[in-house]
Design a protein around this nucleic acid. Sequence first.
DNA 1: GCGATTTTGTGCGTTTTTTAACGATACTTA
DNA 2: TAAGTATCGTTAAAAAACGCACAAAATCGC
Lengths: 225, 225
Amino acid sequence: MSKSKIKDTTKISNAVIKRLPRYRRYLKELKKKGVDKISSNELSSLIGYTASQIRQDLNNFGGFGQQGYGYNVDGLYNEISAILGLDREYKMVIVGAGNLGQALANYTHYYRAGFVVKALFDVNPRLVGLRINDIDVLDSEGLVEYVEDNEIDLGIICTTKDNAQEIADKLCFAGVKGIWNFAQVDLEVPNHVALENVHLSDSLYTLAYKVSGNAAQNGGAGFEE
Amino acid sequence: MSKSKIKDTTKISNAVIKRLPRYRRYLKELKKKGVDKISSNELSSLIGYTASQIRQDLNNFGGFGQQGYGYNVDGLYNEISAILGLDREYKMVIVGAGNLGQALANYTHYYRAGFVVKALFDVNPRLVGLRINDIDVLDSEGLVEYVEDNEIDLGIICTTKDNAQEIADKLCFAGVKGIWNFAQVDLEVPNHVALENVHLSDSLYTLAYKVSGNAAQNGGAGFEE
DNA sequence: GCGATTTTGTGCGTTTTTTAACGATACTTA
DNA sequence: TAAGTATCGTTAAAAAACGCACAAAATCGC
Ligand SMILES: NC(=O)c1ccc[n+]([C@@H]2O[C@H](COP(=O)([O-])OP(=O)(O)OC[C@H]3O[C@@H](n4cnc5c(N)ncnc54)[C@H](O)[C@@H]3O)[C@@H](O)[C@H]2O)c1
Ligand SMILES: NC(=O)c1ccc[n+]([C@@H]2O[C@H](COP(=O)([O-])OP(=O)(O)OC[C@H]3O[C@@H](n4cnc5c(N)ncnc54)[C@H](O)[C@@H]3O)[C@@H](O)[C@H]2O)c1
């Protein structure tokens, strides 16, 4: 499927990466609708990025399209999935079995996408021992050992912000490859560990800014980011 | 406090706005520690943005600092809070009282910050009638009327993606000023309604990208975004 | 099978964003 | 109070991101 042309994908800008999941979402919809092929122009009017940007984004990874034809929906979907690393399974633990930790554990879609929550961890003895969506809540004393023994790939931090750095340190020590952080704090992790923050409050405050008189109104079609 | 110099804040770039909540978080910490003043250089080594960028960002809104001194922590915190629109109260409803809707309703910090959840809405009769964190779960039949009657400012969408656009339409019709969307879909809203998306899956997939071999490693101190 | 048409991949100019440099200004201390 | 120092606000330069335009290549219709 992919051409033999070798691209250096080691320094793709963050802006490009952030758009990939969005491409994938639209391609998934198109697949579901039974659409076989799509041109950058058609994609553009769906997604809201310029056709030029779409072509340029995709070309960072390889020539997935064909002149005069466009892109094969199924093929492109698979390529992007592979680029994102979604063609494998990720073992995860959630640390902090409170509101958010439980909500994530109950969310079944990730499992289907290859993200498997193996265990939850908490310090609260009233939570330890529970089963949430068939996943055990374990005592966080055993976190490091569990992560090591079960070769956990990703740690999800859903504790209060005061404990987050400590948890992150433990997770990194135990060998996770990435951390998905929901605590409202910026964590320090070693270079070889990936970090993705979900700062919900920051997002809400951004919304407040847009709503309050200070901000310019969205002039366009409701796309952003 | 603020100088009389008039700035045109109607076309501040999104990149700047996204950094404001982060400035505010660090200033809050400094306040808590009893720090009175801070220079752009000191802030830089805390936050990880260049001192130059910090000064330029802040200058978009006014000259909050003083030469030879720096910035007054308390004053700057208040200025940024005001810019973000956090010096008022927002009335909110959550549509979709599932995992995520309940997690948000249970989260008490937003209340303190002026974001008050007035009601949850759901179609599921088994959820309607419940009280979550002292907030009623109402039948979503009455959504439009409730939003109109109670002058709700913001709608939070926590339903499945298939219903999200319909809910958004109702919320907009009923007069909300902004929508915080957690459904994995890009919504269309009128120009005068602000929209902020939290695409959790996109964030997770970005993490997968960074973890998978494709990505370049984070060369620095663990800061990003 | 061939010409008209479509559409990509890509070089290049433009815009946006970030970083650097520095004069102006206010603080600090002796 | 005045010299010296710290630090901002701002302008200029550099870098990054984006969009335009077009040649090359493949498709599609006849
Ligand atoms: N719930 C939300 O809507 C929301 C919104 C914005 C931000 N957040 C952030 O997400 C994080 C979690 O939020 P939440 O609402 O689930 O909080 P929560 O209080 O419901 O849950 C936190 C859980 O972490 C556990 N915990 C604390 N220290 C721990 C440790 N050292 N090891 C293991 N477990 C530990 C607690 O026992 C608790 O069960 C917080 O940092 C919060 O600021 C949540
Ligand atoms: N929970 C997570 O961890 C998670 C992660 C990523 C994305 N999301 C997204 O967030 C959204 C909510 O997730 P969730 O886990 O809370 O799902 P959920 O299924 O637990 O809750 C959805 C709720 O919405 C209600 N609902 C459906 N249609 C409605 C309508 N028309 N009006 C009012 N209520 C309606 C349902 O009855 C249900 O209670 C989904 O779009 C999901 O894709 C959730």
